[in-house]
């Protein structure tokens, strides 16, 4: 028995490997790869070494022949935080995508070092998602070690569908933020099982905050991503009005 080696782990893969594995074979074309050297100009002056793709991989790929935007956030670099450059990369791909897009989100939200610019970028991303989903599926995958928190959790919530694995976590505030704001009695961030009970994939899918549960397995996620695209095309699309209702339902009274 070799349960681990038979499976290609999403968690173990790099953002580029993830896109390549999920797209139709050989179809991913990266835009602004690391050699384009589009990195953050703000980090060096704050003593932080920049990564050459600013922690965001974007491009075009085919998904069962559909021409889609492919986006992956690199959770390894500064917690997958979104700054000006990375945020702009994501927004532009969404704006130009033809038949939809998928976002592989592994992100703690706005990059602290670029606070306001990151905020602005996430607003653009949200705009672009809402506009694109009116005409094509936008599917978020949350299955990495970081999860999806902060402003980017709002972006994920705007997508047509959210795919999660048990490893993935999804929430507005990260565990540490909740502990800091509400006190350790309310939430102990070091209590890992409690974190996953509150925001993990199993929980989020059961609650209906995410749509489909997958294994930490690239093949399973690739299959599911295609299903999500097909299902979204066939089902009644959520109008913005229904979206507002959905927010109202989930908001505390």
């Amino acid at each position: 028995m070799t349960p681990a080696t038979l499976r290609r782990s999403y968690v173990e893969s790099t953002p580029r490997e993830r896109i390549v594995a999920l797209a139709d074979p050989g179809t991913f074309r990266e835009i602004l790869d690391p050699f384009a050297r589009c990195s953050s100009p703000y980090l060096a002056e704050q003593g932080v070494v920049a990564q050459r793709d600013d922690g965001v991989v974007i491009g075009r790929a085919l998904l069962e022949g559909r021409d889609v935007g492919a986006i992956a956030v690199d959770g390894r670099f500064l917690g997958g935080s979104i700054g000006e450059i990375g945020g702009a990369k994501i927004a532009r791909v969404l704006e130009r995508a033809r038949d939809g897009a998928f976002l592989l989100l592994d992100t703690g939200g706005i990059r602290l070092q670029e606070a306001n610019l990151g905020l602005l970028a996430i607003a653009e991303i949200c705009d672009a998602i809402v506009a694109l989903r009116e005409r094509a599926p936008v599917v978020a995958v949350i299955a990495g070690r970081v999860g999806c928190y902060g402003g980017m959790s709002i972006a994920a919530a705007l997508c047509s569908q959210i795919v999660m694995s048990p490893v993935g976590r999804f929430g507005l505030n990260g565990p540490e933020v909740i502990e800091q704001e509400a006190g350790i009695e309310e939430f102990d961030a070091r209590d890992r099982p409690a974190t996953w009970r509150a925001t993990g994939g199993l929980r989020r899918v059961a609650q209906g905050h995410a749509d489909i549960l997958v294994e930490d397995d690239l093949d399973d996620i690739a299959r599911t991503l295609r299903e999500a695209f097909r299902a979204t095309r066939n089902r009644e699309r959520l109008s913005l009005a229904r979206l507002r209702d959905r927010f109202a339902e989930s908001a505390p009274a």
Binding site: P3, S9, V11, R192, P193, G200
Partner: peptide, 23 residues
Amino acid sequence: SSMADLVRWSDDLYDPPARFRSW
């Protein structure tokens, strides 16, 4: 490659302490 993999290998017989769990 993860604690979850160890649990799978063990036929769900290994119960990692809370601090080692990511699920």
